[in-house]
Design a protein around this nucleic acid. Structure first.
Lengths: 137, 137
DNA sequence: ATATCTGCAAATGGTTTGCGGAGGA
DNA sequence: TCCTCCGCAAACCATTTGCAGATAT
């Protein structure tokens, strides 16, 4: 973490990875970013993807999302916002809900813990999966 | 998931694992549960720990927590409640905060998604880590 | 009796890392 | 120039799984 933070050099690879993340709202996996990046830099390596995702996360330019699955998803929008996660297909959607920052103070006051942030996600079934579940029965 | 749900047999191992989880509020890792379980059943295997954690989770008797780290933690309290996660030591604490179930309806109404649950966690530094950080400087 | 569970150990798979060469500042 | 970053490939490590024997019901 501390040595990741000193990363400062802007390479083609890092720039491309950030552009790919900023250009989607699908909260992609590292592997999806890799596939997209290869269309522009064919011999880019997965290690470089992970290293740069780490750097971008350390500098607060992106967020890493980990919701129970075995892999992480990444979000090009670094501002706190809430997500909906489909329990069937794993899709992650942005929610247009006000962020409850006052809760952080409330927790800090009531517990005397030092609170720096919070996260909230909703679970359920997305439109596509609701439809398909009906069709299967 | 579907075939895990049909698990119904109560073995010594499963009973012990549930007791261990119910008897702590430290939100332990699978490995910690394994170490505790070995004190009672010395040749219990880690595979059995994971299999039973999966069963108990599928039947809703426990919850799996995955917060950014490379491993999961488990919570013997299956009722929804909020957590605080220390960014320095990884400790997970229960918060005594009212659960905002009305938000689920609000999301469902505004998005026409089928919402079945939600989760919230706060991040920051626990008392121990605040103290130690001062001592280090 | 028999279907499910267990211990064991090997496999899996997302992520990390060591290395020697490349390239941004 | 020089230090950081890259591609490559091997390592890592939490978790999963196949198998043959054990056990709950």
């Amino acid at each position: 973490m501390s040595d990741l933070a000193k990363t400062t050099r802007m390479t083609r690879q890092k720039k491309l990875i950030l552009e790919i993340l900023r250009g989607t709202n699908t909260h992609p996996t590292a592997d999806w970013v890799y596939e997209q990046a290869r269309k522009v830099i064919p011999d880019i390596s997965l290690g470089t993807i992970y290293r740069n995702l780490g750097h971008l996360k350390a500098t607060g330019e992106i967020m890493e999302l980990s919701y129970g699955s075995t892999f992480s998803r990444y979000d090009g929008n670094p501002q706190n916002h809430y997500h909906f996660v489909c329990k069937r297909c794993g899709r992650v959607l942005d929610l247009d809900l006000p962020v409850l920052n006052e809760l952080e103070e409330q927790v800090a006051r009531r517990t005397s813990l030092q609170v720096t942030g919070h996260r909230m996600e909703f679970y359920g079934y997305c439109r596509e999966c609701c439809r398909e579940e009906k069709e299967e029965s």
